[in-house]
């Protein structure tokens, strides 16, 4: 998925002279073709995220559309003040390609896990946050990103995710995708975890329970109409995300459902409010958090059991 995102910068740069790329200290050979053919618009600025965001803001003020790429934790926490003041306050078209959103870098430990990125960025006015489900959707997002008017955070998954959307699946920033029509139980998921929710929904169906699924690629601005449709139809709305339960998709849905109660209950499946422990792989941490498809299906079944 990251490869598709980064390669699209090359495509967009060839199409539009406003596009520049700014990396921190990425792996050798990244965007080799862009560097060869458009060296003046390719920047590798070093391990200096505060500076990079300020520099991107300065270029955006002059009409450029900077695509900034580094690891999600460093692209959010390390330069939060610059994101808030230089980029969001000025509502500038800076694009943040955040590699390793969630538990992607599990073996590298908690310093490299962006488990609260959505929460902290959601709090910034003007910020748009999108987490595509697969590389097909990522390409569509990158295509749509060029003319998006303000700051855009692009949360990139692990890579080699299952492809669950098709070339002709509609995509628009800010628009949810109904992958399964709303039912008594409806999932609302974001990022690559939508594929896990889809697998969970299939398991539930095999067990005789039909479940709806809304893929909420854009967490901010939230497609409130899609949440309302789900909440009106459902007995149980289940949010699923690879992110702490504090402040992410589940919180955004909870805020809306609290303000516009329909009688539907809400089950939030997310990472716990704790620094991740245990290394291993992404799958391992997701299992510890109960976010694998079989666990998601079990948790939904348990939530539907009548209270003892």
């Amino acid at each position: 998925m990251r490869q598709h995102a980064v390669n699209m910068v090359d495509t967009l740069a060839r199409r539009d002279s406003r596009v520049v790329f700014i990396g921190s200290d990425l792996g050798p050979g990244v965007l080799k073709g862009m560097k060869r053919d458009m060296p003046e618009r390719f920047f590798m600025e070093g391990v200096a995220e505060q500076h990079i965001i300020g520099m991107a803001a300065g270029m955006a003020m002059e009409g450029f559309v900077p695509y900034v790429n580094t690891i999600a934790t460093f692209l959010t926490r390390r330069c939060f003040d610059q994101l808030a003041i230089d980029v969001c306050m000025e509502n500038l078209p800076v694009r943040l390609i955040a590699t390793g959103g969630g538990t992607v870098y599990a073996p590298l430990g908690p310093t490299h896990l962006a488990f609260e990125d959505i929460a902290i960025l959601r709090a910034l006015p003007n910020m748009t946050i999108v987490a595509p489900v697969d590389e097909v959707e990522m390409v569509k997002l990158m295509d749509a990103s060029l003319d998006w008017p303000g700051p855009l955070y692009i949360r990139v998954g692990k890579g080699n995710e299952p492809i669950v959307t098709a070339q002709d699946t509609p995509f628009a920033i800010g628009r949810a995708l109904e992958m399964r029509p709303p039912e008594e139980v409806t999932f609302i998921a974001t990022g690559i975890v939508t594929a896990k929710a889809l697998a969970a929904a299939e398991r539930l169906e095999a067990a005789g329970l039909r479940a709806g699924l809304i893929h909420m690629a854009t967490v901010k601005p939230l497609d409130a109409a899609a949440v309302r449709r789900a909440a009106v139809a459902a007995r149980l709305v289940v949010t699923v995300e690879e992110h702490t339960r504090m402040g992410g998709l589940g919180s955004a849905v909870a805020e809306l459902m609290a303000e516009e109660p329909t009688g539907a209950r809400l089950l939030r499946l997310a990472l716990p409010d704790a620094f991740p422990e245990g290394y291993g792989g992404n799958d391992h941490l997701m299992r510890l958090a109960g976010l694998q498809p079989d666990q998601i299906a079990d948790r939904v079944m348990r939530a539907l059991e009548p209270a003892a």
Partner: peptide
Amino acid sequence: VEASTGSLGHGLSIGIGMALAARLQ
């Protein structure tokens, strides 16, 4: 006013972005 300032340490990097933009343009 070319940049909103008050939180210290921001202006130089914004200025660098502007200087690079001037060169490119």
